[in-house]
Nucleic acid binder design. Structure first.
Lengths: 347, 347
DNA sequence: ATGAAAGCGCTAACAG
DNA sequence: CTGTTAGCGCTTTCAT
């Protein structure tokens, strides 16, 4: 069904049909109603690709994530998709498999078909980013970049909450299981940790770095048990879940003998036994915000503005039964060495 | 960068540039190389929307899922996206929020921008489906529909494996926690259960139906404990995880006092404590297959074929520590009533 | 092997 | 308010 079919049946020109859809107020009421009725009858809908050809806007946005297998991203995606749908935009999705070169190629391939792209936890180097940023408006989530719209999360504050929680319970020594060194999130979490450690007097040793995966947590648990800490702060929930698992295997009771805290707040953190205490980071909200920022930017840009809006979303500690007061031990009773662990404070 | 820029710089007509990309063999070698080199230099890429306008093919496919929050779908999505990318197709994603009407609208909105749509666990009625099937080629995953390409899973066989496993361990009575009544998967799972129950002599009582969610499992666990079964078969992993959780809360040891089996094989089934025995259903493979079927269909269609290919993927029981031999009880020792439970056999 | 011309479905001036 | 004309970027006859 093309616009001409409708035009003919409604005895008007194609322009009038077009106007009835795009600028209804420019069409007399009865004409408009007749056109719209006919369009509805024959099931006509404007072809957006054709429209985009002349208007320069596609009403599509792109969304690129490193790995749909990581539960974090479908959640962000869900929020982004919902927000886009609300603005009557469709979303193109692509998965880079953690590959920065592929990410670049996907951006190039998508650029012409979308009005802008939301990049989640982009793996691109600065150089790569500069090579593509002229192709289409780019918005970043979970990644700090200058002069473009970004959606960040208050990682440091989340860590503060986690450490204060441990301090309140009476813990004096904890381990941090670090994430990927290149990760902005990891740097921020360590930063928050350092300052909270100083403020509360809780000693934090750092282990790792670990891949942000379940298996890494299994490995990390053994390292933790070789130290004298009473609590574990993991880079993310996946790692924390691995720790929980390995601890159970080795007969270490959680939280009686060891408290565990994750970071992320994936749904399953509430479903495991015991349910995991975790720092919740906004996911759907981040997706929504990213799309919003992008859309706003596009609007403003047509007004000549050049924007680099930054939105930082809060984090929140969710206390569950994987944390408790540390076991009371007689002074100096715990002699296990902390091999391989370094003091975070002097870092 | 339009095709004309390239044409000018390469001192050829736009037609030649076009041919260099779409039918390279029709242009002399040196001309082609020059054109392609220039195109690369100026970063030209054909505008696919414009191309689609004339060819009638968009090189896009749509993917519609009921809920990205259900871990099943991102996995299917991952497979579908990867396969589409491999065929140089982009994918449009939409989430219906379990709403059939929205699903219909999304199909209508997408139809013109894609060559076909993959529908995961479609919630549409037959009537709704017929209303949209003429708009664009439709392929279904996890849903039986006649005369169109579909990707199914051998649910019944998965249940057979699960029941045989329980029988081998010595279980004589088990409960099935049913899923949504309208669900094709649920019907198939019950069917497999009935026949396996008959074949093995394991009595299966049915409880529910339950929503396919964690919370429903919490509720279901209490119902289960009011019966005299020694094992639980859940409609899906989410429900099974809820059962595990509630059982732990009530101090019932798994698997010593109760064996639990899920269905789906989400990654987290391996991460909980104890790790969940589950029937693994193909997810990424299903996504891949669906896109493949769709692409094949489109190819054949241009050849005049009319296809309704059906691909059924196998399922596989993954045995983990949430199942074990049932506790030995003295005869008739268990007097708890099975209120609200009905025998599946006579159903 | 290459170019000129027509047109995919739509919207944006420009008349009226 | 509405119709006519031109053209978005591309591919495809039809010539040559």
């Amino acid at each position: 069904m093309t616009i001409h079919h409708v035009a003919q049946r409604a005895r008007v020109s194609a322009s009038t049909v077009s106007r009835a859809f795009t600028t209804p107020e420019m069409v007399r009421r009865d004409t408009r109603e007749r056109v719209l009725r006919v369009a509805d009858e024959v099931g006509y809908r404007p072809n957006r690709a054709a429209r985009g050809l002349i208007t320069g806007k596609t009403a599509n946005i792109g969304l690129i994530v490193p790995d749909l297998g990581n539960p974090l991203f479908p959640a962000v995606l869900k929020g982004a998709q919902a927000r886009a749908q609300q603005a009557d935009h469709a979303v193109f999705l692509a998965d880079t498999d953690e590959n920065a070169d592929l990410e670049v190629n996907l951006i190039k391939a998508m650029a012409k078909q979308v009005d802008g792209i939301v990049l989640c936890s982009s793996r691109m180097s600065d150089k790569q980013r500069r090579a593509v940023e002229s192709l289409t408006p780019l918005t970043f989530v979970y990644r700090k970049v200058a002069d473009v719209p970004i959606v960040l999360v208050d990682n440091a504050d989340g860590m503060r909450q986690a450490v204060e929680h441990l301090a309140a319970l009476g813990h004096r020594r904890a381990a941090y299981l670090a994430g990927p060194q290149a990760s902005w999130s990891n740097r921020e979490r360590r930063r928050g940790l350092r300052s909270a450690s100083r403020a509360t007097g809780v000693d934090v040793i750092e282990l790792g770095p670990f891949a942000p995966r379940f298996e890494a947590g299994l490995q990390a648990a053994d390292l933790v048990l070789a130290t004298d800490v009473t609590a574990v702060l993991a880079y993310n929930d996946l790692i924390a879940l691995g720790v929980l698992n390995r601890l159970a295997d080795r007969g270490v009771a959680v939280p009686e003998q060891m408290s565990v805290i994750g970071f992320d707040g994936i749904d399953f953190a509430a479903m495991c036994t015991p349910p995991l205490t975790t720092v919740l980071i906004p996911k759907e909200a981040a997706g929504r915000a990213a799309v919003e920022l992008l859309l706003d930017w596009l609007d403003q840009k047509s007004l000549g503005h050049t924007a680099g809006a930054q939105r930082t979303l809060g984090t929140q500690l969710i206390v569950r039964s994987s944390t408790a007061a540390p076991p009371r031990v007689s002074a100096g009773s715990n002699g296990r060495a902390a091999r391989g662990a370094r003091q975070l404070k002097g870092d």
